[in-house]
Amino acid sequence: MNTALRILLKSALRDRISLFWSVVFPVGLLIGLGVVFDSPEYRGRLLAGTAAMGVFFWALFGIAFENLSHRNRGVYKLLRATPFPTVAFVLSLTIARALVALLSGAVVVATGAIAFGVDVGWGESLLMLPVLLAGTFCFTGLGFLVANLAGNEAQVSMICNLFSLPMLFVSEAFYSLDGSPRWLQELSRFLPFSHFVDAFRHSLEGDASGIVLPILILLAFAVLFLVLAVVTFRWDAEGGKMLAGRMKP
């Protein structure tokens, strides 16, 4: 498993497109909006929103495209002919992506701390760790599900946008929803990205109790996405759906 993890980690670090959308784009957005809106309060919100967005993009889009690539190239079919468990491979892929997600979030937060003087100490950094992990596992599960539902890269992109855009626009990542209609505020609470942003903001504020409920909600969504991903899993591009009971242990 260690060998597979090292290989998948190197592959993740070579994923330039995902790295752009999870690191370069959030950093550019953070600096651009931070300069335009010169408010310490807004910069704190902006830092939490852009860092959460970067991890969200990395976990969702990165996993979806990589999972589709592995399936279309026959990686999963080859795994069936080897003693290496598919579950171990999926776990290695998730861990590799989670490690890079932590790096992505750290880069964005460090940029905000340096460029705008946002106070991020050791306490806040430690609180961010479980938040980043919970968000990564949640959206990684969603990425696996998207790849199972899609048949090609165009469909992956379409389905990812179908999930990601409403989550971004109906969250408080970049603005407050206090003045929005009640139904929109309620809808926001049913989407996992809103809870990820909330947890991230509480961690930056050093509020340990505030991150507990959002993390639990993210983990609940992670379990839901994982179950759906297992049920819809396909060994190859032409294969049909496979029930969880037929998965190789």
Rank of each mutant, 00 (worst) to 15 (best):
F225Y: 12
D236R: 13
V109N: 14
Q155K: 13
L187K: 10
V107W: 05
G28I: 10
F144K: 03
A81M: 13
W21C: 07
G141T: 09
P249V: 11
S69Y: 12
F169I: 13
I211G: 06
A4T: 08
A222V: 07
L99S: 01
A98P: 00
P83I: 12
L8N: 05
L145Q: 08
L78T: 09
V223S: 14
L224A: 15
A101N: 15
H195W: 15
M128T: 03
G112A: 10
K241G: 12
Q185G: 05
L47P: 07
M1G: 11
D236I: 04
P26W: 06
I63T: 14
L9H: 10
V27P: 01
F163N: 05
L19Y: 10
Y76M: 04
L102M: 08
F169G: 07
L228F: 13
A52P: 04
K241C: 01
F116G: 09
N2T: 14
V90G: 03
V36K: 06
L46W: 03
P130Q: 15
S22T: 09
S157L: 08
I211M: 09
V27Q: 06
S209D: 06
C160P: 03
A110L: 06
E238D: 11
F89E: 07
E186W: 01
A229M: 09
M247W: 10
F200M: 13
R73S: 08
S157I: 13
T232S: 14
D119V: 06
S157T: 15
L126S: 14
R14I: 02
P26Q: 10
S171K: 01
M1E: 02
W122S: 04
P26T: 11
F116K: 12
A81C: 07
F163V: 10
S188V: 01
L102I: 04
L177H: 00
A98R: 04
S164M: 04
R201H: 06
A113P: 02
A173G: 02
G44M: 03
F84P: 02
V227D: 12
G34H: 09
L79E: 05
D236V: 11
A51W: 05
D38A: 15
G179R: 06
L177D: 00
